[in-house]
Simulated assay, not measured.
Amino acid sequence: MGLYNKMEVLSQERTPIALVTGAGGGIGACICRKLAAAGFRVVAGDIDPARAGRVARELGESGSPGHVSLPFDVSDEIAVESAFDHIERDWGPVQVVVCAAGLLLFQADGERPLIKNTSVDIWERSQAVNARGVFLCARAYINRREKAPVPHGRFVTFSSVAAQLGGYRSSASYIAAKSAVLGLTKAMAREVSHLGITVNSVAPGLIDTDMLRSTISSSGAMETAAANIPLGRIGTVDDVACAVEFLASENAAYITGSVIDVNGGYRMQ
Rank of each mutant, 00 (worst) to 15 (best):
D48T: 07
S159M: 06
N263Y: 01
D46Q: 07
T198F: 00
S11W: 03
D238P: 00
A225S: 12
A176R: 04
S119C: 05
Y254C: 03
A189Y: 06
D121V: 13
V42E: 10
A18M: 09
H152I: 06
N143M: 10
D210G: 11
A101E: 09
G39L: 12
I234T: 07
G53D: 08
S173C: 12
T15D: 06
K34G: 02
P16K: 06
R112C: 04
R112K: 15
A36F: 06
H67C: 06
E111R: 15
S193L: 08
A189D: 06
S179C: 11
L136M: 07
T15R: 15
C137H: 09
P49R: 14
A101I: 12
A36L: 05
A225E: 14
I17G: 04
C30E: 15
I122C: 02
K116R: 15
M7S: 03
V129R: 04
R233K: 13
T224W: 03
I47M: 10
M222E: 14
M7Q: 15
L206E: 08
A56C: 11
S171E: 06
A131W: 05
Y174Q: 05
E111T: 15
I115V: 15
G196K: 06
G110S: 07
I47N: 07
E8P: 00
C30H: 11
Q269L: 12
E8W: 00
G92A: 09
Q107P: 00
S62P: 03
G110I: 10
L182Q: 13
I229C: 07
Y4E: 14
M188A: 12
R112V: 15
T15C: 11
G92Q: 12
G25P: 04
R145D: 00
D76I: 05
S173G: 00
C32L: 09
A221P: 02
G166K: 08
Y168Q: 13
I78W: 00
S11N: 13
D238S: 12
L231I: 15
G232I: 09
D109H: 08
G235W: 01
P204L: 07
V259Y: 01
S201C: 15
A252F: 09
S160C: 07
G24T: 05
L3D: 02
F72V: 09
A108G: 02
K178Y: 03
E88V: 10
S249L: 07
V181I: 06
K6M: 13
L184W: 02
L103I: 03
L212Q: 07
V42Y: 07
E223P: 01
V150W: 00
F84G: 02
H67P: 08
R190E: 10
A177C: 06
F72Q: 05
A252V: 09
E58M: 13
R41H: 10
L136H: 04
N5M: 12
Q127W: 13
G53I: 12
W123F: 14
P230W: 02
E250W: 00
R190Y: 03
W123H: 04
K116N: 10
V94A: 07
Y4P: 00
L212K: 11
F135E: 01
K186N: 08
